[in-house]
Design a protein around this nucleic acid. Sequence first.
DNA 1: CATGAATGAGATTTCATTCAT
DNA 2: CATGAATGAAATCTCATTCAT
Lengths: 215, 215, 215, 215
Amino acid sequence: MRRVDMRTKMEESKRSAIKEKMLQSAEGIVEEEGFEGISMREVAKRSGYTPGSIYQYFENKDVLIRELIKSGYKRIMKAINQKLDEKMTIEEQIIQRFTSYIGAALNMREYYKAVMFSEDPKIIEMTAVLHSEESHEQRGINKLEKAIEKGMERGEFLKGDPTIIAKICWTANYGLLLRIIIEDIQDKKVIQELIQEQFRLLFQGLRKKEIIKWE
Amino acid sequence: MRRVDMRTKMEESKRSAIKEKMLQSAEGIVEEEGFEGISMREVAKRSGYTPGSIYQYFENKDVLIRELIKSGYKRIMKAINQKLDEKMTIEEQIIQRFTSYIGAALNMREYYKAVMFSEDPKIIEMTAVLHSEESHEQRGINKLEKAIEKGMERGEFLKGDPTIIAKICWTANYGLLLRIIIEDIQDKKVIQELIQEQFRLLFQGLRKKEIIKWE
Amino acid sequence: MRRVDMRTKMEESKRSAIKEKMLQSAEGIVEEEGFEGISMREVAKRSGYTPGSIYQYFENKDVLIRELIKSGYKRIMKAINQKLDEKMTIEEQIIQRFTSYIGAALNMREYYKAVMFSEDPKIIEMTAVLHSEESHEQRGINKLEKAIEKGMERGEFLKGDPTIIAKICWTANYGLLLRIIIEDIQDKKVIQELIQEQFRLLFQGLRKKEIIKWE
Amino acid sequence: MRRVDMRTKMEESKRSAIKEKMLQSAEGIVEEEGFEGISMREVAKRSGYTPGSIYQYFENKDVLIRELIKSGYKRIMKAINQKLDEKMTIEEQIIQRFTSYIGAALNMREYYKAVMFSEDPKIIEMTAVLHSEESHEQRGINKLEKAIEKGMERGEFLKGDPTIIAKICWTANYGLLLRIIIEDIQDKKVIQELIQEQFRLLFQGLRKKEIIKWE
DNA sequence: CATGAATGAGATTTCATTCAT
DNA sequence: CATGAATGAAATCTCATTCAT
């Protein structure tokens, strides 16, 4: 390893520290003033740099925003990548994962909204749920799918296509979260009730089934 | 009716024709460049007027956007205000209403997204689903609630709180629609499949019921 | 007198009634929002006409404003054209005239300020005080001059140039009024005290004269 | 002092040089077209910058105007903060101060008018004369008050309330100056005569004193 | 590498004025 | 004579981006 490489590497770590600082400043803006409040000026001011400096780290505003969204996405994902108690039923495991996910999302409302609403192709690549490309193994939706599959195998769940069922579960939860954020529901009890009811519906459904079965 | 009245009326209708033209120009922008592409300049250019002229018809940009969103909302609402076949089961009725709603939404994708994403208080007043104010009797969510209530009375559905269940059903569907739009899913077969699966999940749930275990 | 003349005359009186209405609307704006609040639009709205109509009566905005100021000036002048009690001393007469003038000015503060601050040559022609042209016999400053002259003749006042003394008295009072208006002094007691002190100073001066005389 | 400090200081001085340039451009506009001729565009054009650049130095137009007025006010104030000959009578001292003040004001006519006519609260705070807050010790009006007080103590002046008398003297002079400016009196002899007459009136008054009657 | 002044384009909005109806 | 839609110019202000230092 030549000296130049060393230097490059050290600078590289310093570089990303500065980038991180800038992204955090941007995040602060998002939470306070919403996503449209981001301006290069404001990011500069908050991070203690000057507008010109930002361009040393981000090619332009779009790139900055893209990275900002990416970092938010990663944080949400981290929330659901917890170890699960293997002794729980699949249903319980799914509920726990969703609960973590919901908690993370509601802790960064504006952010979640922005991430999950972005149409930037680079972002969609990460956040897409309905597309069937199996590229990103570690995405949340795949974990959900696996869990549902296992639930079917174990006889906990009705048989069906786990891929599509996972998508539906995910979008349902996504819709609820978004409305909570958009309508600015803050009352924790209300939120709790909504979420519980959602799980109930998801696992149990609306229809009174026994009757039908006995026919 | 005196002549003056006639003239007034004609002018009034001309006025709203022009407003309509401007709103349609704005709508065009939304569909092409998304909602943030709207600028008074661009609306003016597209509608063949000068920026100043727009202010003859809309007090300011906020008002224009609000009216734009309102008109989109009305179009969606019109779609679900159809007569229903009384002989259908409640489940079938609900599915039919949702299907109409989904069709309307997917016929004006950008628009739907904008309406359902707006945080303008005046718009939220129309679109809010989770807030419990019972003011707007004719809103879609209330119809859904009534239907679910009836389904419970008739013994079609499991007992529960129809208000909250309606909310969950609505947000689930909302989430699915939004992801279809954001991820730009165009394949009708795929969409169809997703929607059907959603209904199945909503009415039947994931969990294998006890009854089944007894078999 | 031919018929045409008749018609012209009648229309003429209607014309000036409408003009008056428009000017009054403008005056209302001045008092509420200050002189810069005047816009043709607003004048139109308040007078119940349309912007276009105003141009039937006033060539343009400048002309309207000029006439507006003129009408205000006339009102102030009317206030001082009262009959005076001939038995009063000249000093008393002057005080009475000034008091009327001050009262009128403070009843139309914004207006007075505008009139007395205008640099429009057409307005200056009316309001000028320092210019020595003796054109406008009926102007307030001339009355003041005459009174001072008479005061000197009667031995009430010290001898001097009544023309220039009148000017100084006038501008002194003008300065006080303007500051009261600009600094928005509303307390009547304070105003009263200032005015009285002004009269005392004007007639008596600062200097302790007897002492000096005896030396 | 480290190099960085040096650089900062130099840049700071460059900054204020540019601000100065912009303010001078604005001042030029005031002198040529009056105070309402100021527009950010015009200031930009005259100072050789673009409109946007001005916002690097002045938060907005109000701030620019405020600073413009302040700088004018300071210039006037500087004029009266001269040393006085202690051997002069109070009357002579007062006359000398007023004369300086008048000279400064007439050297920047449009400017003086603007400053003394501004209703911007921030400006009024500086220019207010009638308000009785004793906050700003160094304001011209306080010096005048002190002088009058001393004149009374020394027996030069008639007894009275020096505060209110100072106000009246000030507003009288203010009124004269303003009329000179508004009526655009340029003839120095005429001005001189007016000013002298004003002093005479101020110190001597109009009324023939009792003493004289005893003669 | 950082600075921050400067740019230039564009945003919203206001307004006097005109003119076909 | 009245209307009011339309204009066009101008105003203030914002912002991403560049570049000499």
